[in-house]
Design a protein around this nucleic acid. Structure first.
Lengths: 199, 199
DNA sequence: TTTCGTCGTTAACCTATGTTAATCCGCCAT
DNA sequence: ATGGCGGATTAACATAGGTTAACGACGAAA
């Protein structure tokens, strides 16, 4: 049994036990793709029919509303999954942009290939379930942060939980992730001299 | 094959095809419970080891932070599921309160009963996956609302999407769901002479 | 009935964050 | 180097929403 992508195999293996012969089936569907910095894996309007695993690189997920305002949903790196997930499940066009922040390598699979596996072996149902549960936890956590914490608290938590990301991302992207403007983030993070508005 | 809860069976059936003989196994685990208005299905600190389906009634899910502030996560009614979902998955104590807003009837199952079914028949894996995906969609949608929309817009959307709920819930609970104070909601909703329009 | 508590509204004031704009700085391409 | 550009900072001002408090409407308990 040749396993061409042992790191990916191990990453999924931690989520659900995939028998090697089943893994071979998925692996046969994976297609490598390179995305230069600035290019998108998917953009609004495009059919959300692919998913991918990051091998190297870094990606940003974001919504854009009708007024052109952006809100960053997540950052994802090696071993993590790329997909406009809700739209993929709903078989609708993407409303999300997934953009490479660095030159990146990913392994792409058509989602229908994955759903086809569901009927073949329960391990795929399980993997699908665990992935969905994992996505759920991330969203719930973030919802709680947004509902209960101030921007200052959210920034502090971000620094604590993703120090590597915080170090290499430009402030404007961090601000977008926190749901505030770069100006507001600068007030929070900069050594800025708080002063009274004398009047 | 006796199906004691045809409505519940149908509700789940829409999510994933459960063979009747499999359904009988889950049904054997369901225990009816009544909760008077004001009582909680689960509260912070309690082990999150049960899930339930609402037969009649209405429930509110909310977080409470260390400062005692509440944030309402969701409302759920007949045919919908009750569980401190993330904590259930993580086998951790609840951080969520699920409170009956009316006298309610539910069918309770220990979560370990459900996970035990996962190994018996792939339909349960599928049901688990579809439920997780469903929960995911709800959270993602809400995250997007919170990141991109003002309180006024969120209120307008809530009225449009859940008019029945909006009609019977006290304003303070709607405010908590929107992530604002009752005072702020009153400014938005009251006949008070505000001539602002949503963005 | 009276009393009490909760809820919704309104007002006054406060604070966090948005908006716009100016400045500065580092970097890249000519 | 020179010029230009985008990102970060800072300032000045605008606005949404929070906080506190007063008040009236209502319903439950006495």
């Amino acid at each position: 049994m040749l396993i061409r992508h042992p790191l990916i195999f191990k990453a999924l293996q931690r989520l659900a036990p995939i028998p090697p012969e089943q893994w071979a089936r998925l692996e046969g569907f994976l297609r490598p793709r390179r995305l230069a910095k600035g290019r998108a894996f998917i953009e609004p309007g495009q059919p959300a029919d692919e998913a991918a695993i990051v091998v190297t690189g870094l990606f940003r997920f974001y919504y854009t509303d009708q007024d052109g305002r952006e809100a960053t949903k997540a950052f994802r790196g090696p071993g993590e999954m790329l997909a406009a997930y809700a739209e993929l499940l709903d078989k609708r066009p993407s409303r999300t942009t997934i953009e490479a922040l660095e030159d990146s390598e990913i392994l792409v699979v058509r989602y229908e290939r994955v759903t086809a596996l569901y009927d073949d072996h329960a391990c795929w149902q399980e993997l699908g379930r665990v992935i969905a549960e994992d996505h759920y936890r991330q969203r719930e956590r973030r919802e709680q942060e947004l509902l209960l914490n101030s921007a200052t608290e959210r920034y502090r938590d971000f620094l604590k939980e993703k120090p590597e990301l915080a170090a290499k991302l430009p402030q404007k992207l961090i601000a977008s992730y926190l749901g505030i403007t770069p100006v507001a983030l600068s007030r929070i993070s900069a050594p800025g001299r708080r002063k009274k508005k004398a009047r």
